[in-house]
Structure formats: C-alpha cells, structure tokens
Design a protein around this nucleic acid. Structure first.
Lengths: 153, 153
DNA sequence: ACTGAAACGCCACGCCT
DNA sequence: AGGCGTGGCGTTTCAGT
C-alpha cells in the first residue's frame, strides 16, 4: 500500500506540517518547483491517504484542559467481547486523545486530557465501571517538554 | 491568561479541528452565524494563542514510520545542567514526538516514532550516550486504537 | 511532468448600519 | 458588533510543450 514519495513530495509534506496555510506559490518557491505541480502532488498525496487531515492545533491550557495523564492498564480479560467494549468506551470519550495496545506486561496505554484531577477521577470511575480492569497506574504530567505532530519525512 | 470563549467560539473551534480547510461560509452556516463575525472570532483566537497552528496530519505508516514506543525514564540526576542537556537532546530529535516530565517515581515519558525496532535502538543508544539515565522501560505499541488531536471544547 | 494563463471562488478588509 | 460590497489573492483547471 505504501506510496512512492520523492524528495520534492517530502519537502512539500515538511512545509505543510509546519504551516498548512501557506499558499501554493510560497510552498513551490521553497521546494524549488511551481504552483501546478505542487498542487498535483498534494492532491495525489491526499487521495493516497498520506495526507489525512487539515486541522488546527489548539492550546489545551487556554481551553481549561490543564491536566494530562498517561494511564497504564493491565487487564485479565482478553476476549473479543471485552476488547470491543473497551474500544467503544475509549472512542466515545473525547478526553482520551490516544490509546495503544501494547506488547509486554502492560496491556494498554492511554493519554487523557482533562480540566483537573477531579475530572480525571470521573473519567477513571466511569471507565472501571464500564469494563473490568485488573490494574491501573496513572502518570501525571507536570510539564510538557515537547509536543509535536510533525513527523520526520 | 485565559481567554473568554463563548458557545459560538467553541463551535468554530470544533469545526476547525475537524476540518480546517472549510470556507468561512461553511463554518458560519454550521455555527449559525455569518462570514464576518466568524472571521473576526478566528482572528482573535489566533492572536490570543488559542489557535496555535494550522497543520496537516500525515499517515505515519505510509511514510514508513511503523513503530511507536512509549519510553518510561527514571533518572538519578536532578540538576539544572542535566535537565538542560536532556531537554536539548529531546528537542533535537525529530523521532521524539512527545516528552513529559512526570510526578511520581517515573520521571519522564517519551513518545517516539521510528521506522522499526532497529531505529528505536539507535535512538536509545544515542540518548543514553548523551545523558546519564538510571532506568529505561520501553513500551512497544502493537496497535493504535485511537489517536486524535481534537480537544473537547 | 512542468509551464503559462485564464476563470472562478474566497478572503480580508473597509464602510456602513 | 453584524451585514454588505469589493479588490486582490489563491486555487483550480486546461491547453500547450
């Protein structure tokens, strides 16, 4: 499924990741091409799914979401039905920004953004009431040292 | 520092987070307003720093970045100089997408995206050679169940 | 594949209410 | 503060190389 991307494609992606509001002319100049080919390349990468979404990144603190937790989860349940329930719960909860199934003795990790510790507790109570979980460890972020969506291309 | 946001502002943010390429008219229609006020609100939220960045989200796998690790770090060093070195290293490394300083017995957590396990090992070797670290646990993601940049507004 | 040009749409503002 | 109008820019498309 992987798409062939040449050096120009990668330069375009690098520019778009940094600032997607740039005009085609600006991007074209920076990558050493011109408007039309840049436009065609972007369209192709969109169609191929390399470019997924055009979005804005917001300041979580300005929105009053001042607490960030990483939640390590161990479970004793590994049946399909349990997994489906767990997954639906995560998807339905907007405070869950990320969820990964892991290799090793910890089964899942979540990244959760909430207003404060109390809001985290509500989330936690809701979660354990909906699905059976063996063990939960919450890691509280004190400081976001780095946070980027820019992938190295 | 916190900005006052009313219901319309929040609706606009919700729309922009889902698709930032929508026209002002489209957004205006959806939030029950019209072009000029929507434009003014967006400009203000940009200036206030609520809207940080306009970007594209890429498919990491399509770019060949097929491995994602969460790295739990314990250190015995807590001096300013060590922290500065550690921070510079993280900032300089594009494969480090997130880094948080934590409360509790684990000091830091990183999220790292790389091509494969071998690339992770290079990163790991480079990291421990640059800064003294007491204990490292790497959690390997087997499956990304959820990943969103959309904050609940 | 890139160039040039042309058509359209949208944005960014100013003015007015 | 919202509605209206407009000049100019940006996007999208098409013919030509």
């Amino acid at each position: 499924m992987s798409v062939r991307l040449d050096a120009t494609d990668r330069k375009i992606l690098a520019e778009l990741q940094v600032d997607a509001s740039q005009s085609l002319d600006e991007i074209a100049k920076k990558v050493g091409s011109s408007k039309t080919p840049v436009w065609n390349r972007i369209r192709k990468m969109r169609e191929a799914g390399v470019i997924r979404q055009n979005t804005v990144l917001l300041d979580a603190e300005a929105l009053g979401l001042e607490a960030c937790f990483f939640v390590l989860i161990r479970t004793s349940e590994h049946e399909a039905e349990w997994q489906q329930r767990f997954l639906s719960t995560l998807r339905a909860r907007p405070e869950v920004l990320e969820a990964h199934r892991l290799a090793g003795d910890i089964d899942y990790i979540l990244k959760v953004r909430v207003a404060n510790a109390r809001a985290y507790d509500s989330f936690y109570q809701a979660l354990i009431s909906e699905v059976k979980i063996h063990n939960v460890t919450a890691l509280l972020s004190m400081e976001e040292l780095k946070a980027t969506t820019v992938l190295p291309v």
